[in-house]
Every structure is written in C-alpha cells, then in structure tokens.
C-alpha cells in the first residue's frame, strides 16, 4: 500500500507536536511519550517533537542502562526517521544551561531559540506534553 493511498484514506492531516520536558529514567514520562509518538506515526499526521528543559537529556549520547536494569530506549529515537518522524526541535537555552551542544545528541535535530520554539508551538493544531 503506497503512502499516498494512506493519506487519501486518512483525511485531514493535522500538525501534532509532542513536548518532552523530563529526563529519561527518573520518571516514566519520557518513555511513555516516545511510545505515544511511535503510535501516532500510524495515523499519517504531521508529527514533530520538541525537547525542552530536562527533556534534552533524553537525547544524550552514550546512555547505558545495563547496571540499572532498565530498558535503554535512547536507541529508539534513532528509529524515528524510519517512521517518517524527522522534525526534532531542541531549545538552545535548555542545552546551554546543561553544558550540552548539538554534538552531544544521538540524533540530528534542529536547534531553536526559545522564541522560535514558542512560534513553532503556536503553529501546531495539537500540542501534547510529557
């Protein structure tokens, strides 16, 4: 089945933004958010992800959860491209105050200023927070 067919059957495409603001392992938010994002891909919508505050820690390279015996879901962010989810926005200020930059992240992202992030958010049809 071609993607074009899916679009025709699916009707209106809306802009969905998933906002991630929590670090990965201390709470379940980040993992739950990622699962919702993966499920959302089945609906052929215009999906983007925003990472702010401690949410930027979800994307830090070199996570190894072996000793804490939790699932290392950081590799799953690299699967998003295969799900046609390619709009990943990271707020610059959130990176800076944590001593991070784009090279510390395990996927390609677009770094935005706080104001640009605000505009991006306002342009969505639906914003869902984790």
């Amino acid at each position: 089945m071609s993607e074009e067919m899916d679009m025709d059957e699916g009707g209106t495409v809306k802009k969905f933004m998933f906002v991630n603001r929590k670090a990965p392992y201390g709470t379940i938010y980040a993992l739950e958010g990622l699962e919702v994002v993966l499920i959302s891909a089945a609906f052929d919508q215009d999906v983007s992800l925003a990472f702010l505050d401690d949410g930027v820690y979800e994307l830090v390279k070199g996570q190894n959860t072996k000793a804490v015996e939790m699932k290392n879901f950081s590799s799953t962010y690299r699967a998003l491209e295969g799900y046609d989810i390619e709009k990943l926005y990271v707020e610059r200020e959130s990176l800076e105050v944590r001593g991070l930059n784009e090279d510390d992240l395990l996927v390609d992202v677009q770094v935005l200023s706080a104001a640009e992030m605000g505009e991006m958010m306002a342009a969505q049809d639906v914003v869902i927070s984790f």
């Binding site: 603001r21 702010l52 505050d53 707020e91 200020e93 959130s94 706080a114 104001a115 992030m117 605000g118 505009e119 958010m121 306002a122």
Partner: peptide, 17 residues
C-alpha cells in the same frame, strides 16, 4: 519546578500567547 520559567522563556516574548 521550572515550568513557569520555561513557559515564560518560550512564550513570553511572543504575541498571541
């Protein structure tokens, strides 16, 4: 927590928020 601070940083300077 920092929700208010982050909200003001992202939305504070913009219109229509």
């Amino acid at each position: 927590n920092n929700s208010l601070a982050s909200c003001l940083r992202v939305a504070g300077a913009a219109k229509d928020h």
